[in-house]
Design a binder for these strands. Structure first.
Lengths: 122, 122
DNA sequence: CCGTATCCTAATGGATACTG
DNA sequence: CAGTATCCATTAGGATACGG
């Protein structure tokens, strides 16, 4: 092999950080809001279990994609927002979005409809 | 919410197509070779189970990312190569690679060393 | 409000033997 | 050589109840 081996490791790492059933929608909302409170995020993501949402947020925090901000007192108030590292992913995620819309329009439409129907039935 | 909902669906679809433990390395080799025979791919990916590699390739074929080419006769000869749709992912995957190298250098290095060590011990 | 603790199910990845 | 068939281990995702 004349090309450099192990060039795929970075790809592995980044895809790993993005893998998780609810990460795309979490990222989407974080890119459209400066910050979001936990319960608000839980409310706008339909049907995700609280534990799972927390798992995802913890992973993303550990990976340095997002920042968790806790205001002490009662009731507690926790906000999540993108880190610089997370923001740097913006253009790439847009490219992936565009690629899917161009090359997998059928699947994207199907998913859109499924989500839309689910939202209405609540 | 003033922004358009469900804009994350395309991202969901594309990440879904890229999710799988061995897809990054498969894609990497397909981007560096016009076509690869099944056994060759199985040989250069260390320790993956044949069934799992086949599962991944089937998924990628069903998703339209790769094309399977079978030459009849005995012994059989099956080659895999990127489709146009798959090739269109190239620049995006490079961006993800670059992002990881810039923002997650530690993790990338760790993985590189782990793979390198595993390769030597065979 | 935010998070934990349990317990459960489904999906993914894998080892091994076998077949045309 | 390429692919199937079993069977198994691990992980991800989820429902529900409880706690500071």
């Amino acid at each position: 092999m004349k090309y450099n081996e192990f060039e795929h490791c970075g790809l592995n790492v980044s895809l790993q950080m993005l893998s998780g059933k609810w990460k795309p929608i979490i990222l989407y909302h974080l890119f459209h809001n400066q910050q979001i409170r936990f319960t608000e995020l839980w409310r706008i993501i339909p049907k995700v279990a609280k534990k799972v949402l927390l798992d995802h947020l913890r992973q993303m925090e550990n990976d340095g994609l997002i920042i968790r901000n806790e205001r002490s007192g009662f009731p507690p108030e926790v906000c999540y927002r993108l880190s610089e590292k997370g923001k740097a992913l913006g253009p790439i995620l847009s490219s992936l979005e565009a690629w899917a819309n161009e090359h997998a329009a059928r699947e994207v439409e199907a998913l859109r409809k499924a989500n839309s129907a689910r939202r209405k039935s609540e």
